[in-house]
Design a protein around this nucleic acid. Structure first.
Lengths: 223, 223
DNA sequence: CGTCTGCCTGAAACTTGTTCTAGATTAGCG
DNA sequence: CGCTAATCTAGAACAAGTTTCAGGCAGACG
């Protein structure tokens, strides 16, 4: 249970003797991986977290159960990878059609509400991904971190914070992210309405305009 | 799967023909319930979420597995009930020694940091409770709602918002709660440091002092 | 061409949450 | 006291995530 990552044992298919960095997959392997993620998204979209059953994913993707586990060491890893996929798509879309509001805070709110509407179109898929994200333990930290960084990038883009956000701004972004995830969860579990989620998002986004774009104090902190 | 709550079938021991409200338990049953919760907290404190295994809880509490399930219809229910317990204790403690800071926002931050330090003393118990809370689906909504209301009450107390908080204040409290839960999760999964959690809490608490204590419109709400 | 190493398959096994069943106990009540 | 309904116990059974194993296949390399 929660074996974390094994040392030298092949984790991802191609991850044995290759370089220590990103394991790079062959053509067929890349296709297999995509097929697994597609099967996952389909199942999740139809029945939410519970419908994403490892045997079902393997069968639908046309791979053996053991192979599925070789690509994704747990159901949580699988769903977090799916989330990463969706976030990358969203980031792409947003890059093409950026938010239009004047204030940075309003732009962030607009962006998040757009994402929220996208999730409302596939509530069961959203359920699966968000539940996985919040259930993830330490063994999934690296993957969750990637997802978190993607979300941060999306919010920073909306703020127009440029390439060097202040620590102040980063704190605000973290708080926005916290609110976003948690508000989403309350909506998914039926304890908050869509309107309430909007209010929460707008409330927390007020912090953005209160945070200075560039702090006028150039003192370097020692960590 | 996720059978939600059955209609007339006995859910809690005493919940068959009695009044429609809270099922009230006999002496022995109340003791049994407490014993189960104690066993749960002990196991959680020693090994976190994974160590709270239903068979182990039943054995340690000296009840049969079926009985455990009669009292708490799932592992998640069990852990959320444990959380409710802890929140009630915390609320009690805080009532005796309220935060001392001058500004409402600072008082809230002080209160949450005190709670955070308490959790740091039992990180594995915290892990179990928070993971359960965030993994809870619709079938646990009522119980999660109780926990949420307890948290809200604690924060409102710290704000000194009196008995009639404004909708504005309630939104801010919800956002604080979101941040609190999510920041806790990032800490528990090792993706954020204690210092970072403090910063996030302090950041979000800035919203408190920006929200009006009493809106200048004295219209009474019907409710 | 033959071999070798690593990847993939199919299937069984194991773990833990959850459900079910049959019988023993208990509590309330006439 | 004896009856009845609810509760509790022990244990099997089931479901889904995860692990393991024996063997097949394919490309790399001599």
């Amino acid at each position: 249970m929660t074996t974390t990552s094994r040392a030298g044992v092949p984790g991802v298919p191609g991850g044995s003797g290759r370089g220590p960095g990103r394991a790079q997959l062959t053509e067929r392997q890349e296709a297999r991986r995509r097929g697994i993620l597609r099967a996952t998204a389909e199942l999740a979209g139809r029945g939410g977290f519970d419908a994403v059953q490892m045997r079902a994913v393997a069968e639908r993707a046309g791979v053996a159960l053991g192979t599925l586990y070789r690509y994704f060491p747990s159901k949580i890893h699988l769903l977090v990878a799916t989330l990463q996929d969706q976030l990358r798509q969203l980031h792409e879309t947003l890059r093409k059609r950026p938010p239009t509001a004047a204030d940075p805070g309003a732009r962030v709110a607009q962006t998040l509400m757009r994402a929220f509407r996208a999730l409302q179109r596939e509530p069961l898929l959203a359920d699966a991904m968000v539940r996985a994200l919040s259930f993830a333990d330490r063994s999934v930290s690296p993957e969750v971190d990637v997802a978190s960084r993607l979300t941060t990038a999306i919010i920073l883009d909306a703020m127009g914070a440029g390439s060097r956000p202040t620590p102040e701004q980063l704190s605000v972004v973290r708080v926005i992210e916290h609110t976003w995830h948690s508000a989403l969860m309350t909506w998914l579990s039926g304890r908050a309405s869509i309107a309430q989620v909007r209010i929460d998002i707008e409330t927390v986004c007020r912090l953005v305009d209160a945070a200075p774009d560039r702090t006028p104090k150039p003192e370097p902190k020692s960590r």
